[in-house]
Design a binder for these strands. Sequence first.
DNA 1: GTCTATAATATGATAGAC
DNA 2: GTCTATCATATTATAGAC
Lengths: 233, 233
Amino acid sequence: MRVVAEQAEADAAGIAARQDTKEVILDSAERLFAEKSYASVSLRELTQAAGVNLAAVNYHFGSKDALLIAVFRRGALALNRERARMLREAEEKAGGGTPPLREIVSALVLPAIRYSFTSTRLALYNQFVAFARGDGPAEAREILDKDVGHLQRFALSLARALPHLPQQEVYWRLHFAMGVLHSLYTDMKRLESLSGGLCQLDDLEAVAVRVVDYVTAGLEAPFAGPLVQEKTA
Amino acid sequence: MRVVAEQAEADAAGIAARQDTKEVILDSAERLFAEKSYASVSLRELTQAAGVNLAAVNYHFGSKDALLIAVFRRGALALNRERARMLREAEEKAGGGTPPLREIVSALVLPAIRYSFTSTRLALYNQFVAFARGDGPAEAREILDKDVGHLQRFALSLARALPHLPQQEVYWRLHFAMGVLHSLYTDMKRLESLSGGLCQLDDLEAVAVRVVDYVTAGLEAPFAGPLVQEKTA
DNA sequence: GTCTATAATATGATAGAC
DNA sequence: GTCTATCATATTATAGAC
């Protein structure tokens, strides 16, 4: 794209030129789609923010819809890979047995939080997912619905760590945990406002501890069983 | 609109005709904006779904943006009113003292869940909020950010019920609770898929108990303090 | 691969008859 | 208040020069 010397170098080396442009577009798209929703971001705004030509999106991805799917795929792959790695490590450390609940929760939670701090790439991944579900083309929604394989692994691991809980309740509480994670990407402005600036997304470790504490406690909540308490009033 | 006899009747009675059309538009807008995002829903699609004329939106609301704000306002008012009512009742029942944590949580949680079951009007309110934040005009976003007054009441009530917790942590855990609620409107399809159909949003009471259990446990989670545990590995 | 110019279409909004 | 017709504009996508 911009640096012509490098371009010539890459071409000479037989490499598929600079794939830089593609990456830059993906980065901008992820951020803008997350911040402003897919439909509301025009290709003009997007390509201008990315510093590339208007036609580049269609050249590299084929269409705006295809770009949305590409940006989702990239984010999902990176996040799921890291989660799976941490879960595997915890299981190995447990010698084939069940890892402590806190470690399972950490494997689920920490990659999402870490990325939100360190990588521009995944900072807004979860927020993007919310929009993709409402906005995107059918294909993107299907991918999203099917993107449960890695969560299934966590469901199984959690079920082993919480043998007294019916499987159904494990699923519900895992689902709630995802909601807690979601809150880190979605409503931080409201939290900042609510707390008068006291609560901020600045200290990675501190936030991680809070989330793990909360989610672990929720998973360990006493389960009363299917009977609903009779009102005394 | 459609029923001419009623229209004439209302006109004869001196009432401002049928305000039905306005309501129908608000209902459709709330649902569609929530499902597909504000920007992706055209006025043509919206008015067709509502069964009203294309020009009706501009006539009754002035613009598409103004419609978004109107639909948000209506939902926020109804939900906050009900939450405040339940919290007040709990406080009165406690005779000026601090209500049990579970009751505070119920006041926060039950109205949102109940509406999601009973009222088409508010069924998708929370999901809509997520989109409004990314999508809407600046005015809508500001309203959203400032819409913390009623949450402030809950923060204070929770702080009294959890006197050992620093105020900052109360805010964080209230924020996480909102994330749990959010999960009921946002990713239910993923939960259904993940659980193989085992988990569904069908039984209001059962879901309410699950959410209250989870959120209460999270609020009651032990608080280790600002010190971060040293890794033993 | 990148860019300009433009085609084809969809959108929000409005004027004006009823 | 409702409807049809239409304007002005913005959008995605593409053709074709470089």
